[in-house]
Nucleic acid binder design. Structure first.
Lengths: 335, 335
DNA sequence: TTGTACGCGTTATCAC
DNA sequence: GTGATAACGCGTACAA
């Protein structure tokens, strides 16, 4: 069943059917009614591929997501998809591996399918070495790119983010201001945001006139989802003589590990050990005690990503960088 | 840059270019090389819409997901996407609201875009009233449909699931066999799987010759993500005089609420109260104590969904129902 | 082995 | 207000 069949049944040309389909005003009410009747009768739906071929768009947004099962990213995913749908755009999902090559492939897949725009979810896409970001610049020549919670300056690339440095700094300051002297900082990523957060930690110490003890900064790479390992590593650090009365992390799951460590070491939280996480995820509420964490305004950031993308697609002038401010949500793991 | 440009530059016809593009054996090595050189040189990528129009497929699978931010579903989403990609199929994501109308719309969107198949994620899509499932039957007339962890008998509909009744039954039996007398059963959904799980609970009691106390079966509808409410409702139940020494739930988050209740009521877990969840999610590991939960084999189920879909698309005969067996993962919230 | 010509189902641009 | 017709870019019988 195609547009010719409909035109025949309705006794009009395909041009008229097309006009009715696209709400053109240049159709008499009578004709429109007749055509619509046939369309409904035949349950006719225009072929999306043919339409795409002609218009060179299928109203699709490509979502590049490092890991759809991650709590933070899956939350963003849900918000993005829902928001794009409001604008009648559908989402093509592509979960890339962490390697540069895989991302490149993901982007190529999306552009080869002629998506109207691409959202890069999270900061893992922005590499420290500028040459490794060539793939973003190349893709931006074809379609607008929006970075969710990452920063990269380039034509046709738009960034919507949370000021993670400031948010982390305020969290560290809070720990200091509640009397903590030795704050162990655990981070899981050395990418852009990872560095920003760490910079926030350092800035907080500096702001209070405290020298940074590099021994208190620890990189826990692959343990993000391995609570027992985090716990054991912390126990080992303690065994080795490292003294700390607070653990601040770049990710909630690491904070969970810190709480488990406290239990294993028979340390009371928050009396003997303060714990602060990052992302303000549900995990914080599952823990006992509930964990203080940084809310990085995922909802607002995600929705703004969609608004920015739509603005760009509609040809409006859009800011290339929008920064939200995080907020420390205080719970029972801190004084 | 289209196939004509390439054919011209290579000094061949478009048919030959097309053959090279599609790895047809009927091309001389010399010609192929020359054409490939031009293709690489021009960074030519065939137009996906035109290809779709001609072949009537863009190798796309529609994923209907009630909530991409849900821990269980987002995990399934990640596995599905990754597995489909292995077969060179891309995924169009559609997160439907819970209403029947929204689902209908979601399916219509996917079919109108001519996806090659649709995966319905979770059991919320199968309604108790047969007439409400007409939308599934109608969709199945157009494309194969695979149900992830749900059951529905219909032509062109394939189900891959976990035997949730049996898994729940075994969990309940375990509680009984460790000496629990009054098991409070908390469930959050009355859909197909919700009923199956409840049936498992009842079957377990029966198997041990114990009468079901209906007072111990409670429907906690919208509290799935509201831990404090679950806690408070349990406190109220206790206040009202209801006696129970175990809480079994249809969802891990409800179990988290039960643990929080125990703390508020100063009940030791598992000594005074056993707690069992369902889904074996990360939340179980975040809790203190860690929660015993039912592993419903999400990985295996998801991967089989993809295998089944691929089999159907390749024209192979596929079983319409595949059932995995769940497993109780014992942790510190039970004796 | 290679080339020609048509079909796929739209939308858009003209005429009338 | 309506209709004929040309793109859009590819795959593929069929012919050579």
């Amino acid at each position: 069943m195609n547009i010719y069949d409909i035109s025949e049944k309705a006794g009009v040309s395909i041009a008229t059917v097309s006009r009715v389909l696209n709400n053109s005003p240049h159709v008499s009410a009578k004709t429109r009614e007749r055509v619509l009747a046939v369309i409904n009768d035949c349950e006719y739906v225009p072929n999306a591929f043919a339409r795409g071929l002609g218009l060179n768009t299928m109203k699709t947004i490509g979502l590049l997501c490092p890991d759809a099962s991650d709590a933070y990213l899956s939350h963003a995913l849900a918000i993005l998809e829902k928001s794009f749908r409001k604008y009648h755009y559908d989402c093509l999902l592509c979960c890339t591996e962490r390697t540069l090559e895989a991302r490149q492939q993901g982007i190529e897949m999306l552009t080869s399918r002629h998506v109207d725009g691409i959202v890069l979810m999270g900061s893992t896409f922005v590499e420290t070495r500028e040459k490794d970001n060539a793939y973003i610049r190349n893709a931006a020549k074809q379609v607008p790119i929006v970075l969710l919670n990452a920063s990269y300056s380039c034509d046709n690339v738009y960034c919507v983010m949370c000021d993670e440095q400031r948010a982390t700094m305020e969290a560290t300051q809070y720990l200091l201001d509640t009397g903590r002297k030795n704050i162990l900082y655990l981070y899981h990523s050395k990418n852009y945001n990872g560095q920003k957060k760490l910079a926030g930690y350092r800035a907080a110490l500096e702001s209070r006139g405290i020298a940074v003890n590099e021994q208190l900064i620890r990189f826990f790479a692959d343990e993000k989802n391995d609570i027992p390992t985090v716990r054991d590593k912390l126990l080992a650090l303690r065994e080795s003589g490292l003294v700390f009365d607070a653990v601040q992390t770049s990710e909630d799951m690491l904070a969970i590990g810190a709480v488990k460590y406290a239990k294993a070491a028979k340390l009371s939280v928050p009396r003997a050990l303060s714990v602060v996480g990052y992302n303000n995820s549900s995990f914080c509420l599952c823990s006992e005690p509930e964990i203080t964490s940084v809310d990085n305004k995922l909802q607002a950031v995600s929705e703004q990503c969609v608004a920015t993308m739509m603005g760009v697609l509609e040809g409006r002038e859009m800011p290339q960088k929008i920064v939200f401010t995080g907020e420390l949500v205080k719970r029972d793991s801190t004084l």
